[in-house]
């Protein structure tokens, strides 16, 4: 489908901690771009013809756009609270639609089957009722009061707990998850999925986290999140149809999929169809 409506959005294109003066080439919505470290110590993004593109440096990543973003990158106020560990998880390439990657991140029903004994376990497979809304003022999808039994909810969790989640979609290829923080009840851990759309059926996924966890070594935190995401990768690469259907008929949602339904509705409303399929084929 068309990239027109999504072209003015911000997308992650690299890790700030891994910028090189000579730069590296990558794709953004089918266009080859170069991401490099400028002489002034700031990130630079340009087309192969040398045309500079907008840059934002935030949440550990370089963000850019092929168009002209009308607003700044979305806020994650919690992520900037002092005392959090900021975790660059690194990039993983997935042969799937960027929208499929986000949709999978929003799904909880797969936890016991794909993340067995970590984020879920049989027979605790029930997804309890939760609340989903499109917040008109912020123009974001939110799912709240999501509860799920998890044997090992986080690296810092010892033993099974019922975890509470909130999901938020502030941009078409980004999702922010707020999750019960085992060492600090009352606070939320922030786990994000930033997706760089390379093409409509290929993406680079940059997970990132802002956690209250002073004890776990950084490498363990990175491995935990990579383990979780790589358990999803083979599933994502085998989803048919490859593009996310926005019209009903091709896939039948259940009650547990309310967040996905809202996400698809929100995408369709905005004409965010890069990586989507509109008419059931």
């Amino acid at each position: 489908m068309s990239r027109d409506a999504m072209i003015d959005e911000w997308y992650p294109v690299g890790l700030l901690s891994q910028l090189l003066p000579e730069g590296r080439e990558t794709l953004l919505m089918g266009e080859t771009i170069r991401v490099s470290l400028g002489a002034d110590g700031r990130a630079k993004v340009a087309t192969t013809a040398g045309h500079p593109l907008p840059v934002t440096e935030r949440y550990g990543h370089v963000w850019s756009s092929l168009g002209q973003p009308a607003r700044p990158l979305f806020d994650i106020p919690e992520a900037e609270h002092p005392g959090r560990r900021l975790v660059d998880v690194g990039v993983v390439r997935v042969r799937c639609s960027p929208l499929r990657a986000v949709e999978n991140f929003l799904d909880i029903a797969h936890f016991p089957f794909v993340h067995t004994d970590i984020l879920g376990a049989e027979p605790h497979t029930e997804v309890e009722s939760y609340k989903v809304e499109i917040r008109e003022e912020a123009d974001e999808v939110w799912a709240t009061q999501v509860k799920f039994y998890q044997p090992q909810a986080a690296k810092s969790a010892s033993g099974g707990i019922t975890t509470e989640y909130m999901y938020r979609v502030p941009a078409p290829t980004c999702s922010v998850l707020y999750k019960t923080c085992p060492p600090r009840p009352g606070e939320w851990d922030v786990i994000t999925l930033f997706v760089q759309p390379l093409t409509e059926e290929l993406c680079d996924v940059w997970p990132w986290m802002a956690l209250y966890d002073d004890d776990t070594p950084m490498t363990d935190l990175i491995h935990f999140q990579q383990m979780i995401f790589l358990q999803d990768r083979s599933i994502l690469e085998n989803q048919i149809p490859r593009r996310l259907p926005l019209d009903p008929g091709m896939e039948i949602p259940t009650r547990a999929d309310l967040t996905s339904v809202a996400y698809r509705r929100w995408l369709k409303r905005h004409g965010f169809t890069y990586g989507a399929q509109l008419v059931a084929q």
């Binding site: 089957f113 794909v114 067995t116 049989e122 027979p123 990579q226 383990m227 979780i228 995401f229 790589l230 358990q231 990768r233 083979s234």
Partner: peptide, 13 residues
């Protein structure tokens, strides 16, 4: 298991 290699769910539990 390891990420990408799943256990046999039909056997356990």
């Amino acid at each position: 298991e390891m990420p990408g290699i799943h256990r046999l769910h039909e056997l356990k539990p």
